[in-house]
Amino acid sequence: MREAGRIVSEILDELEKAVAPGVTTWDLDALSEKLIYQKGARPAFKGYHGFPACLCASVNDEVVHGIPSKRRKLREGDLMKLDFGVVYRGFFGDSARTVPVGKVSSEAQALVNTTREALHKGIQAMVAGNRLGDIGHAVQRHVEARGFSVVRLFSGHGIGRHLHEEPDVPNYGQPGSGLKLRPGMVLAVEPMVNQGTDEVMVLEDQWTAVTRDSKLSAHFEHTVLITEGGPEVLTRHRAG
């Protein structure tokens, strides 16, 4: 799983570099697929319950599960969410980043910063002996203190020989509640944070989830191993 996580991180580094005005979400998906096979891995998302692409590419008010399109060109000021996973030797890695396209508004940047920080708060709570509710509470407290909302329809998840395994890892919760965290568990933690309401709806394509009030959303995710010595991020950034 460390190797799967490393591959995910390296490919996301390349995708992040490729994000620019004029680039289509289809271009990013094609690049991700090329890199997957170069690294001897397989796509985790393509074909999963019928999903048609290797990359979930969600822009602005799209929260998650956006389908790449040749018609969707990125513009200056957009928020591009890259959600990506691979299978390597039977094990999965999964991670997501929100990438500003060029110069974005101060409000958009604050949303991105808060979501990234919330992910780190959640990871800090991933200590053996803590509980799932401690992770969600750490995320929720950080987000709501800054005037944003956490999406409740989607959550993080266990991950290993399958992309989605038990348990669910909500981005909200009560301290001390839920399953106890034990060394050897691997969880994908992924705050999805909205500028306005936490409510989302799924479009007619049956995949793309958008904010109900059409305001911005941001998304960050890491695959994290719980160890005796604390959390180990398997998909940590290699490029800085």
Score class of each variant (00 low, 15 high):
207 W>A: 10
100 P>G: 07
160 G>S: 10
184 G>L: 14
202 V>N: 04
112 V>H: 05
220 F>P: 05
193 V>H: 06
170 P>S: 03
188 A>V: 05
132 L>Y: 00
79 L>D: 03
68 P>I: 01
119 L>Q: 02
24 T>A: 11
65 H>K: 09
225 L>E: 08
220 F>Y: 07
229 G>E: 13
6 R>F: 08
208 T>W: 12
131 R>Y: 11
55 L>P: 04
107 E>R: 15
67 I>N: 04
34 K>H: 11
110 A>I: 03
165 E>I: 01
45 F>L: 15
11 I>H: 03
1 M>S: 10
26 W>R: 13
153 L>P: 05
42 R>Q: 12
57 A>T: 01
73 K>H: 13
44 A>L: 05
67 I>W: 09
15 L>I: 00
29 D>I: 00
155 S>F: 02
222 H>V: 00
66 G>Y: 06
162 H>G: 14
215 K>H: 13
126 M>T: 03
176 G>W: 08
182 R>W: 14
4 A>D: 07
208 T>E: 10
92 F>R: 09
226 I>T: 08
145 A>Q: 14
137 H>E: 02
16 E>T: 01
92 F>Y: 12
120 H>K: 08
128 A>M: 14
79 L>C: 12
131 R>P: 07
30 A>E: 10
200 V>K: 04
52 P>K: 12
193 V>I: 07
96 A>S: 09
157 H>I: 00
110 A>D: 12
107 E>N: 14
225 L>R: 13
164 H>Y: 14
97 R>E: 05
182 R>Q: 15
122 G>M: 04
173 G>F: 02
176 G>R: 06
64 V>I: 09
227 T>Y: 07
122 G>S: 10
152 R>G: 03
7 I>C: 03
14 E>Q: 13
50 G>N: 04
160 G>Y: 11
30 A>N: 13
57 A>Y: 08
136 G>W: 05
121 K>M: 07
180 K>V: 11
97 R>G: 03
53 A>M: 14
106 S>D: 15
48 Y>A: 15
16 E>M: 11
198 D>Q: 12
144 E>S: 08
6 R>W: 10
53 A>W: 10
93 G>C: 09
137 H>S: 02
24 T>I: 00
8 V>A: 02
209 A>R: 02
108 A>W: 03
